[in-house]
Nucleic acid binder design. Structure first.
Lengths: 247, 247
DNA sequence: AAGCCTTTTCAGAGGGTCCTCAGAAGTTGT
DNA sequence: ACAACTTCTGAGGACCCTCTGAAAAGGCTT
């Protein structure tokens, strides 16, 4: 019984860490993103515009690219074409404003790429990246190959189908509830502080208080622990922990 | 059976002691902190402001940094960026005032860094630092890699899950009870004076008397030793010692 | 055995954390 | 445009935790 996603870092088939290039012109954003990705075991480089993105990509040879759709010197589609020309099998995750041209991006995703809209949560980006890589057939031998099926006790989450069941009974969850539960299930038997949860599950620009975490924990409990032996436990003054009863 | 955390000092993979840089503008605080860290086997340097922190970091190459969020010449975020630029994989533990928590530390925990609020206890800082380093994958080959599982007799503590069991039975502990027990379990078979315990487990600004230690020992005994052969022993006029019965 | 000192235990006040409810504002789908 | 849902805020209140003070128990010395 050991922690799944901190110890055995993601590896490529040849044993080196998975590489990702983060391209965005907001330093705060690249800072947080690359920090979280490094923490998850990725090897990270950053770039602030299209030109340096292509140059870095050439030298770095990333497996995936996180790419802002709007860059100071060029648009996403141009950079995408450049990337495709350089790196055949690279996965691209686009970051877009909510009102941005969804049609054109929809066409992009047909090619196996994906996108998230700003503002996003880190969990969302990380999950999407894992999904991209998994579909690209990478990361065999790491924990990624079963990343679409999280299990804690009799609680099961199918990430791909976005379906959660406990004891075989399907549980309907809202978007935020689902992401909160996914974060908990990715860190079972580990106490997570409200600050940690906020930083990962809520958008980076969320201005509210940690109180929302309590509220959503309460929602989750009503749906998951209702009547049954609880999986979600409060650790007063510290945070919350998801674990099956027996230990 | 010998003491875990004083004798075999924490070592990096190359055999040298783990290095930590303490940055705070209150001399009393850096004094206490660096003293405790040295005692635990860390190699310590201190700095009183952001500029000298960066300079020292460059020369010293620490594995971890304890960093006051509010410094005379700059704020924590700026120093963090500088540190990240110089030292790729360094762990940062922030010290913040309680009301500054909500202020804007968002995103800090996402990159694996952590923070504690003033006033804090030494045990809290040390535990958090150990956690940071362990998660950063360092200190393999030292005692750190199993630092999340303390065992004394049939008493077992899982630091990650904050779960304590004796003879397989789960024992619920409050926050202070847990920290007191952790300190005892990190120093088994060693008599600890009430002053020592007070200095380590309670906040540095705690104004009360050593009487609280007696009280919390009493609480612990009720939960841990109740009915069974006692693990907590009183050494009259000296302090307390945690040890299995056989001796 | 008496007296003194240390330690343990009890009871309660006060403060803090957490849970829940109700409703406002925003979003989505029909 | 309307209904249903989702997200978040604020307030109230329950419960837990921490610490104080005092009394009881236990141990050591004389």
């Amino acid at each position: 019984m050991e922690n799944q996603n901190t110890s055995p870092f993601l590896l490529r088939p040849d044993g080196t860490p998975v590489r990702v290039l983060v391209v965005d012109d907001e330093p705060d954003l690249t800072e947080v993103l690359s920090g979280a990705l490094r923490y998850e075991g990725w090897e990270v480089r950053t770039a602030a515009d299209g030109a340096s993105a292509l140059a870095t990509a050439r030298a770095f040879g990333p497996d995936a690219v996180v790419l802002d759709w709007m860059l100071p010197d060029s648009d996403g589609l141009t950079v995408l074409r450049g990337l495709r020309a350089e790196l055949a099998g690279v996965c691209v995750l686009f970051l877009t404003a909510r009102d941005a041209v969804e049609d054109r991006i929809a066409g992009i995703t047909a090619g196996g790429d994906d996108y998230v809209t700003k503002p996003f949560s880190l969990e969302e980006v990380l999950a999407r990246l894992r999904g991209l890589l998994r579909r690209a057939g990478m990361a065999r031998g790491s924990d990624l190959h079963q990343a679409d099926r999280l299990v804690v006790g009799d609680l099961v989450m199918d990430e791909q189908a976005r379906e959660v069941t406990r004891g075989g009974v399907v549980i309907e969850l809202s978007r935020t509830e689902f992401e909160l539960l996914r974060f908990l299930m990715r860190n079972p038997r580990r106490v997570l502080s409200k600050a940690q949860i906020l930083d990962r599950v809520w958008s980076y620009d969320f201005g509210g208080r940690a109180h929302v975490v309590e509220l959503y924990i309460s929602y989750l409990r009503k749906k998951i622990d209702a009547g049954r032996t609880p999986l979600i436990h409060t650790v007063r003054g510290v945070g919350y922990v998801l674990k099956p009863d027996v230990s």
